[in-house]
Amino acid sequence: MLEVQNLSVNYRGNRALQDVSFFIPLGQLVGIIGPNGAGKSTLVEAMLNLIPATQGTVRFKGRALKNQLLKTSYVSQRSLVDWDYPITVWNVVMMAQTVQAGLFRGFNRQARHLAGAALERVGMYELRDRPIGELSGGQQQRVFLARALAKEAEFLIFDEPFTAVDRKTEDIIFEIFQELRAEGKTLMVINHDLGDSLAIYDQLLLLNKRLIAQGPRHEVVTSDNLERAYGRGLARVFA
């Protein structure tokens, strides 16, 4: 089980996240939704200890998540990455094994096999020698998905993986999310869109600094909840 208790984050004197608590059973696909500036990215970054939390605990299978980063895979927002960086697709995916390989050591055959298999799975193996900057937005996102897969993590977090991707990539990502869930992995996905794409999630977390609602889509995406999160009702959010 993933347990987050009383997680709060301050950013330059302002509350970015306040007393967020929730439990997620293992093997679920969870979507995080909320308006811009609601603290969605802040929540996952604080969970992974990428930014300091003022209070709160995050536990995965009973132990602090920050001490189990090898079991965790995180794909940040695409805007945080420099896509002109001189690097090939293959070397991006190999990064998944950087920590496992250990200091002063190269990658072994097993690591290379994992990277190759992950690239095959997202349909990018043929383009493995291409510079990352020469790919389309969707292809770049698939490479990052391959990197997450190559780590063989138990808990995977994706920050807006559907931004600037083509239909084919969207389908591949949906399919792989479902496969990962079937393998018993736990996934948290920040989703900007409130449309039909929410149907794939087992449950949703609706956030606006605080946790507004948690549960299946029909319980969370209600006029009342959206009014509380977005300050306007269902019809206007979808308008």
């Binding site: 992974l48 690097i87 070397n91 990064m95 950087t98 200091l103």
Partner: peptide, 22 residues
């Protein structure tokens, strides 16, 4: 040479590298 792969990860994707425990 010794830290090449770690520095490659960090300079390409600092958040990803930090989330991996580097």
């Amino acid at each position: 040479r010794l830290f090449f792969k770690e520095l490659l990860f960090y300079t390409f994707d600092p958040k990803g590298a930090q989330a991996s425990g580097l």
